[in-house]
């Protein structure tokens, strides 16, 4: 608990900044986009052949609805959250090496397993807090942007995507950070990893190679499907949870057995 609290204190600023940034983004953008796209004569038909919307899991019919627009905006926010999640995972594991504080922490009366779980828990709580803020602000923003009624469950499912994506990339980042603890520039690596993952997932949807979609957690969710059925695709959620558990378990095992190099 001591290490968890310490990590939470370290993440305090980040929680505030991310919660405010994402909430403000959806609060201001959603009503504007809804107004713009649902206005008569906006001409979304001209995008009907654009494969980009297919690649993010939206069809034109859905995109023309307020919930479709909300998913469209959330997808971009999800991209940022994926980078943040991976970066947090990498940074929280590599910072003890960067600052050479591993000797200090790992010679205290806490098992390595406890250190790993505390670090994960603090980062996961951050992702959940940011997600809750985003959900609340999404609800307020949606209520403000449309006079039509909307399905709250669908909104929550879409809003929760940013938390799912942060968590899976967080565990992946922690796993990589445990294997390569001496990584210094975490942000460029995080951006690169998420972009490659995004490109792979987009290609799978455009070209129709389905198994490639498993390589991109950003594409485990299909906007049109969530909006029409008010649920996730179960097989992808199962894969996502299995992957998260695998990354966590593997990272935990490696961290517990790893030699901590001498500072020189």
């Amino acid at each position: 608990m001591v290490i968890f609290k310490f990590e939470m204190r370290q993440l305090r600023k980040s929680i505030i900044v991310w919660s405010l940034a994402l909430s403000s983004a959806i609060f201001f953008m959603l009503p504007v986009y809804i107004k713009m796209i649902t206005s008569a004569g906006y001409g979304m038909e001209s995008f009907s052949d654009n494969t980009f919307f297919d690649s993010i899991g939206l069809n034109m019919e859905i995109l023309n609805t307020p919930m479709g627009i909300y998913y469209f905006l959330t997808f971009f926010i999800m991209f940022a959250c994926a980078i943040n999640g991976f970066n947090k995972g990498l940074a929280i594991m590599t910072k003890e090496y960067k600052q050479n504080s591993a000797d200090f922490l790992l010679t205290k009366p806490w098992s390595r397993g406890n250190v790993y779980v505390s670090k994960f828990s603090a980062s996961a709580i951050e992702a959940i807090i940011v997600g809750v803020f985003y959900t609340v602000m999404s609800y307020v923003s949606m209520s403000r942007g449309t006079n039509d009624s909307f399905n709250l469950q669908t909104l929550i499912l879409i809003a929760a995507l940013i938390t799912w994506v942060q968590l899976i990339f967080l565990t992946f980042g922690m796993f990589i950070g445990t294997i390569f603890p001496k990584i210094r520039a975490t942000l460029p690596i995080s951006t690169g990893v998420v972009f490659v993952s995004y490109a792979t997932g987009s290609m799978s949807r455009i070209v129709g190679i389905n198994y490639l979609r498993y390589l991109s957690p950003l594409h485990y969710f299909n906007g049109s499907e969530i909006i029409t059925t008010a649920s996730y695709e179960v097989k992808y959620i199962v894969v996502l949870i299995i992957l998260m558990l695998l990354f966590l378990a593997a990272g935990y095992k490696i961290f517990c057995q790893k030699d901590i190099g001498l500072v020189s």
């Binding site: 600052q99 050479n100 504080s101 000797d103 200090f104 500072v263 020189s264």
Partner: peptide
């Protein structure tokens, strides 16, 4: 430790 490093 011989080289004392902590959270900067």
């Amino acid at each position: 430790p011989s080289e004392a490093y902590y959270y900067e």
